[in-house]
Amino acid sequence: MNEIQFLTWVRSTGLNIALGLFVLGMLWRLIEIYSLGRKQDMAPARSAAGASGWHTIFRRSLPPQGMMKSSPISYIGGYIFHVGLFVVVFFLAQHIKLVDSLLGISWPNLPAQVIDTVAVVTLAAMVLILADRINKPVKRFLSTFGDYLAWLLTFLPVLTGYLAVKHMVLPYTTMLALHILSVELLLVALPFTKLIHVFTLIGSRWYNGDISGKRGVPV
């Protein structure tokens, strides 16, 4: 298989397999989780302003009291790489074109230089987060193979994407194919690793906010 065939495969068969597994995997996991249900709360609820599942979905995106001070790398690094990923994924011209060709919808892109900078900053933040995971006793203690795998699966698409755009290390065609392949691996792994938090954190925050909200405590 030469690089053109490789690129063709990841763009057609590979993409179809990855998207299929992602969609089915996500559906399976979400049903597996949320169909477990929960018992109805018999205690009469107390109501208080700002205390509900919906409030917590949004409120928990901000660092709770005292947490920024105790874990600055987790919060600052975490914000940078999450926002960075979002910007790179959704505002690179090539990505928007891809969505346009598949779904027929588009939106304005950010200039290539801006995306370049954001990609580099995102990669740097991710390296920092990894170093923090290895360095901090609690994080190192909790870390499993799955944590490092999830990190790698998130890091590779950004790295290969950046290198492809910059025509670095490998020929563009090969690097682009590797980039698409790395995204496909990410998609397949997402439902079955901690990366699923992208979706389930909405449910988790809602439950948490709801449990405390019924007692009148905004959390």
Binding site: R29, S74, G78, K139, K194, I196, H197, Y207
Partner: peptide
Amino acid sequence: SFFSSCVHCG
């Protein structure tokens, strides 16, 4: 949902 969401951030 809680266990699925945990990212081991500590």
